[in-house]
């Protein structure tokens, strides 16, 4: 049986070290370093086009992205060249910003194909479905087909809960969720993290998903570089002042980085 979630010991679970990532046409990340300890909640903020989603995708090993230098370590293993499915099986999960519709395939099929038969698995799924205020029939529906934006995002979180990763990347899970749904998801993620000790790397624009969570660390990404790091208070500051001036800050005090 798989050990669900991570241990509570606060040791480094995941780190990105001086990562340079290019698409086919240009470099998006110009040397980014990020660290996530076991069970931590780390938030990635930044203006549009800063490279937040690129970083999330690179962690998951998305095709079309190339790591030209730097590395990614997970649970003591260099995963920079690891195929996406192996990363997933090692314990990394990503909740997609735009979940993909797959006709004719339902959620249970996917989860069963991954195939860890934890006792009481179905019961567990039913409970999580309820926690997220999703219809119990959603497990039998075609994957993301004909679902509302909110349902899709919740379904991503349901998959996270079912797969019990050590590290979950939530890529703008809160965009497309209304206020109530965002609260529901935020609570569900909080309770799940408490129960399983899952480390979270959260990419967000509107911080709604953070309302019930305790943030340990914040990275601000500007133009493909870390412009600032701080604790949870940094979020309030940015909500008040915006990202303006961040790039200058970085240029002036580049030793702050990392």
């Amino acid at each position: 049986m798989k050990k669900r979630g991570a241990s509570l010991a606060r040791e480094t679970l995941f780190s990105v070290q001086d990562l340079h990532v290019t698409t086919e046409t240009r470099e998006i990340l110009h040397g980014v370093s990020v660290e996530v300890k076991a069970g931590e909640t780390v938030v990635l903020l930044g203006p549009n086009g800063a490279g937040k989603s690129t970083l999330a995708s690179a962690v998951m090993g998305a095709p079309g992205l190339k790591v030209t230098s730097g590395k990614m370590m997970f649970d003591g293993t260099d995963i920079t060249e690891m195929p996406v499915d192996e990363r997933a099986r090692a314990g990394i999960f990503m909740a997609w910003q735009a979940p993909v519709e797959i006709p004719g395939v339902n959620v249970s099929e996917v989860l069963l194909a991954v195939g860890e038969c934890v006792p009481g698995y179905r019961q567990l799924l039913a409970t999580y479905t309820k926690t997220l205020e999703l219809s119990p029939f959603i497990l039998q529906r075609e994957l993301n087909v004909g679902l509302s934006g909110g349902e899709k995002k919740k379904l991503e979180i349901l998959q996270m809960m079912a797969l019990a990763p050590k590290l979950a990347i939530l890529d703008e899970t809160d965009s497309g969720l209304d206020v109530d749904a965002a609260r529901t998801v935020s609570r569900a993620v909080r309770d799940y993290q408490k129960e399983q000790g899952t480390a979270l790397l959260i990419v967000t624009h509107n911080a709604r998903i953070l309302q019930e969570l305790t943030v340990d660390k914040v990275y601000v990404l500007v133009d493909g570089k870390v412009a600032k790091t701080g604790d949870g208070k940094l979020i309030e500051k940015i909500e008040k002042d915006g990202f303006s001036g961040m790039k200058l800050v970085m240029e002036d005090t580049s030793e702050e980085e990392g």
Binding site: P83, V84, D85
Partner: peptide
């Protein structure tokens, strides 16, 4: 890729 990001192998994903 979506299915592989859930831990399915490429063959499993394509077959599904």
């Amino acid at each position: 890729y979506y299915l592989m990001s859930r831990g399915l192998s490429e063959i499993q994903a394509r077959a599904l």
